[in-house]
């Protein structure tokens, strides 16, 4: 017999409501400032994501998915994804914090301050865009934090980007799930 207990929506709401806001998020998009709560999970690190943290995540996403800086709208999609994840679970706040701290340590400065070419080289050098451990790679070489970035953070940011209108634009869609449109469009090939 298998007992199935779904995660309580109420518990999530309590989590969101019961925390002290520390950092700011969402500044880039010009929308109302929103806080990302400190985790209640004792396993995860305290604190929240700052605007500079978010800029680092957007900068990382840009070189991983496009090989360039993201435009304003594209960056907003990444911010929306990060905001949503942060509200969804304290684990994501911890993951994103680990990511920006690790990137900062590896680069010696915030990666959003690197030029695009430097950032591309940085990602390549540390194989941040490759979730797999390659045959020629020493398993002990990459720290646990770097592995977290490669295996969890980068795929998460890629997923968020490609789930957004920017991802649908890659396949040529201007309307897609969640953006309503012309009811006859589905009956014919795209132009």
């Amino acid at each position: 017999m298998t007992t199935v207990a779904r995660r309580s929506f109420l518990q999530k709401l309590l989590f969101v409501a019961g925390v002290t806001p520390v950092g700011l998020i969402g500044c880039r998009s010009g929308r109302s400032l929103e806080t990302v709560p400190t985790s209640l999970d004792p396993q995860s690190k305290p604190g929240a994501l700052s605007r500079a943290d978010i800029d680092d995540l957007v900068a990382l996403t840009g070189v991983v998915v496009e090989g360039r800086n993201l435009g304003h709208a594209e960056g907003d999609y990444v911010i929306e994804h990060v905001e949503h994840r942060a509200r969804q679970s304290p684990e994501y706040v911890a993951l994103y914090r680990t990511t920006v701290e690790t990137l900062g340590q590896l680069a010696g400065r915030r990666i959003s301050t690197l030029e695009v070419g430097e950032r591309l080289e940085f990602v390549r050098r540390h194989r941040l865009d490759d979730p797999r451990l390659r045959g020629d790679e020493d398993p002990g070489q990459a720290s646990g934090a770097v592995k977290e970035v490669r295996r969890r953070a980068v795929p998460d940011l890629i997923e968020g980007y490609f789930r957004s209108p920017a991802g649908w634009a890659v396949v040529g869609y201007t309307t897609f799930p969640g953006r309503c449109g012309d009811l006859t469009r589905y009956t014919r090939p795209e132009r």
Binding site: E159, F162, V170
Partner: peptide, 8 residues
């Protein structure tokens, strides 16, 4: 798969 599923 959707674009995000293909990408990840």
């Amino acid at each position: 798969p959707t674009p995000d599923q293909l990408a990840t």
